[in-house]
Design a protein around this nucleic acid. Structure first.
Lengths: 206, 206, 206, 206
DNA sequence: TATGAATGAGGATTCATTCAT
DNA sequence: CATGAATGAATCCTCATTCAT
């Protein structure tokens, strides 16, 4: 996988940030194809030529930004959730994950927009991310398997299917964010009401 | 809402189809901005100039195609589901809806792709879909309210939240389509396993 | 010189007028090159194809319109001036000519606009009118020669030059029309004040 | 008022001239709308893309060229006339002005053509010339008022009207240029003969 | 003769990328 | 490393004219 060239990492921190920021701005407002290098270099205050000394091409930059976003999100959620995995039930953990996801998205709306774009464009996704489409699914699957092993779940449910369900639900969250204000209760209430259903649907029957 | 010009509707059916087909092809493979009139007219075998006698401009065509897709999907699902609304339980109906949705998407993968496209071009989305934004949510909400009235549902669940959940799940379906083959069971099994959870989560406790 | 085809003259009077009118409208608002056949046929309510059954091409129509305008102006001025040539002095006649010209322009502003266009575009002029650029000059020259013979003029003036002066002055008139209202006296006063100078400049000294 | 971009002024003088020259060539031969960027860049030997690094668009270039022409003419006439305003009578000055105008037009026929163009595209005219519409009239009016104050003029003439006359006469000059050769005397003789009439018409009677 | 669809050449403009300094 | 001009392919769209019915 290409990456920014060395020159980019040799840049003074502040300048590098400006470039990253400008890129996030542009990519969050326009599709990959519509995004303009010109807009990015202008906003970053660097020369057009310099751009091509930092990055191979537009796609190179895009991949880098996507990578950054993923990294940031993982870091964020990790920090939020860290250490609770052990002492929590599966459903408590799920609740924290969703809430943490919502918080992250609200704090980083531009990254959310970029991520959505990627998710809705399979070709681009494939080009940029390559094979690794299933990280999210797999993550939930592992969680579910552990919960199953811990006998928290109804043994009749299929963890592969359930992992899809949990992943799919994150879209409900995003919707919630985009429509902010349309529903008259706050995120935590929403998540709790949602999880009430999920928990009833998946938990081990006594 | 603009529409194709009269000339387009005066065209012989076969030619009109060729244009529509070429447009669907192009729009399903490239973003609105990136889609090329040239590719469309070439594929349709018409002159560049003719295109502009049929449509105001690229956006006009796009809107038309989106409208067609929506119409087609509604028709499809209606035909599939028609008549069963009365004799079905809520969960049976939901099963049919999801299966019908999957079938439609599998039969019309290009329309699916265009729809997904739309989802991440908010500006265009608004222009094209306009007011009809939350049709899906509202549709599920109505269904849920009826089910609630029929005492099929756990009175503790919130129909607004549940409608989001049901809408969000359609994303799990799309995922399924894109990954076709990755899961080792077929759509019906998938939907059944999914609905097993959903039903458990939402149905009225005895 | 091409002319409209026979078909045009076979048209019912009313329809022919509609075409002429539409053409005058378009040509008075846009330069020859910018004028659009489409606009003309739309306004005239005829089919695009019909146009090419009446006229060879855009230029053919333009020539025809120019011809009409010239004819109309000559007719107008003739009617105004008719019969006075004998009983008038040269300067009285000139006054009538100018006033008549102003009246015509005010009553036919669209024709004025087309004429101006032509005058300011030598290439077009040549293409459309051919060699006959000097009609106006020659007309004034004849008038001046008669006046000279009648001993109304200072024998020292050169009639060729004076004819240019008189022709050039018509531009002052046009200016006056375009700026209508900027000067605080009316046309007749303007012409009289102008002719006061001209007469002093050209009349035979006692 | 828009202007060419900085990049244009950073260009080596020689290249810049090539662009200007090509533009003047094209605009003097075709109407603004009809003028082709392609022709200009080809003649100037620059890339199509480069053009858009120098100018915003076609109109931007056109305005610039018009500005240049105006500037050049003012400079030219100023240089010609400079210093004589004090020692000349009004009629002597007028003679110099007309002769200078003729010389300029003959030396810059392409600029003349562009200027004439502008006169019959009112929309463009307004955009380009904007407020400065009646500079010419006002210029002559000031001159006339001074002459009047100096008692060079017949007190009965109206300076506003006379200024129109003098401005209108410049059209006679243009005619002269376009018909070059048709009259059998040279410019100076023509102007002298013209001014003989004008002077007689306007000068103070003894 | 009327119609209006079909055509395609031609124009303006954008933008990723290259290149010379 | 920085710079920013140079490039040209690619795109949308317009419009006079032709053509088939």
């Amino acid at each position: 996988m290409e990456m920014p060239k060395e020159t980019f990492f040799n840049l003074p921190e502040e300048k590098r940030q400006r470039v990253i920021d400008a890129a996030i701005d542009e990519f969050s407002q326009r599709s990959f194809h519509d995004a303009r290098i010109t807009a990015i270099v202008d906003a970053a205050g660097i020369a057009k030529g310099s751009f091509y000394q930092y990055f191979e091409d537009k796609k190179d930059l895009f991949k880098y930004i996507i990578g950054l976003a993923a990294e940031k999100k993982i870091e964020y959620v990790n920090r939020d959730i860290m250490g609770r995995i052990q002492d929590c039930t599966f459903f408590q953990l799920l609740r924290e994950l969703y809430l943490s996801g919502i918080r992250f998205a609200k704090e980083n709306p531009r990254l959310l927009a970029i991520g959505m774009q990627l998710l809705n464009n399979p070709e681009l996704y494939y080009e940029v991310i390559g094979e690794h489409r299933d990280t999210t699914n797999e993550f939930y699957e592992k969680l579910l398997e552990k919960a199953m092993a811990d006998q928290e779940l109804d043994p009749k449910i299929d963890t592969k299917v359930a992992s899809r369900l949990l992943a799919g639900l994150s879209y409900s969250m995003v919707d919630l964010i985009y429509e902010d204000g349309k529903l008259d209760f706050d995120d935590m209430v929403f998540v709790d009401k949602l999880l009430y259903i999920v928990e009833n649907g998946m938990k081990r029957k006594p």
